[in-house]
């Protein structure tokens, strides 16, 4: 079927907003959504089926990891470890591998990111969602999906473009922590241009998470020196997620360490409302369309 511009409707230009389709599910205490470009009008049902099949794969993956790692489930492996019934050395390969990865991040961030609560209980909540998104990305690639956007409770991982066969990046808004119905800014992810230097992931950490998996708040020099919200863009979601959490916990010192040690862009909202940002979050670099 050839696209025909109807006489009654406005002729849409090439710069029109990309049309998307998305599906959601709940897991890990939050909502996960998978969005893909809306298919051409030739086979809409096939495209919907493809999206729903992909969503089902990602949902299964998230729920499987949640059953292993959630401390909210008394029957999870993580809960058994927390109660001291299961030694970490006897835990599953998944559990041990993720614990090792979290421990490496603890070293790399000078202790700002940690997988242990102050009471010594192992809690991998700070890394398990990023890990789940990373695994989901691998699955979507294996399914042959080229253009998609995965949002798990405000952390974003994309591939390709919202407009298939174009260089256009996905544009991710960043919520204003002072007013969650407005956006502070946006950041381009994915796409095939060099504007964002290969950044595919954006993770945000905020005070709402404090008490869940940000325990190192004592590292910060008092309330005024801390951050209300930290967003990190990176090539991979685990790096973005871990560093956002680490900077929230470690404050300005960890922020300086992160920007010096990793190829990341950071936007931090201070407790007094002021902003700190790396060049990628400044206007000229962020402008892309």
């Amino acid at each position: 079927m050839q696209p025909i511009s109807s006489p009654g409707g406005p002729l849409q230009s090439d710069n029109k907003e990309p049309r998307l389709r998305s599906r959601i599910f709940t897991s890990m205490g939050t909502v996960v959504s998978l969005a893909v470009p809306a298919a051409p009008a030739t086979a809409p049902q096939a495209a919907v089926d493809e999206l729903e099949a992909a969503t089902a794969v990602v949902e299964k993956l998230f729920n499987g990891l949640d059953r292993t790692f959630s401390l909210y489930r008394p029957d999870s492996e993580a809960s058994a470890v927390a109660r001291g019934e299961l030694a970490l050395t006897d835990a599953s390969a998944d559990m041990r591998r993720l614990y090792v990865e979290a421990s490496e991040w603890r070293t790399l961030t000078d202790g700002a990111f940690t997988a242990e609560r102050p009471d010594g209980v192992v809690d991998l909540a700070g890394i398990v969602k990023g890990h789940a998104m990373r695994e989901a990305g691998t699955s979507l690639l294996a399914l042959g999906l080229k253009d998609w956007c995965l949002n798990a409770g405000g952390d974003v991982l994309v591939d390709g473009s919202p407009t298939p066969s174009s260089a256009r990046p996905w544009l991710a808004g960043v919520v204003d922590p002072a007013d969650r119905t407005t956006l502070l800014t946006s950041f381009p992810l994915g796409g095939y241009s060099l504007v964002n230097a290969g950044k595919r992931a954006l993770a945000t950490s905020g005070t709402s998470e404090r008490g869940h998996h940000i325990w190192s708040a004592g590292l910060q020099g008092g309330q005024g020196a801390g951050f209300l919200q930290v967003s990190v863009a990176s090539a991979d979601i685990v790096t973005a997620d871990v560093l956002a959490t680490a900077i929230m916990a470690g404050g300005a010192r960890t922020l300086a360490l992160a920007t010096a040690r990793w190829d990341v862009e950071v936007l931090a909202v201070k407790n007094d409302g002021g902003l700190l940002a790396t060049p990628g979050f400044r206007k000229p670099a962020a402008q892309n369309s």
């Binding site: 990309p18 959504s33 969005a35 949002n151 991710a172 919520v175 956006l183 998470e209």
Partner: peptide, 8 residues
């Protein structure tokens, strides 16, 4: 924007 980033 096509998606919204924010604290969980």
């Amino acid at each position: 924007v096509q998606t919204i980033g924010g604290a969980t």
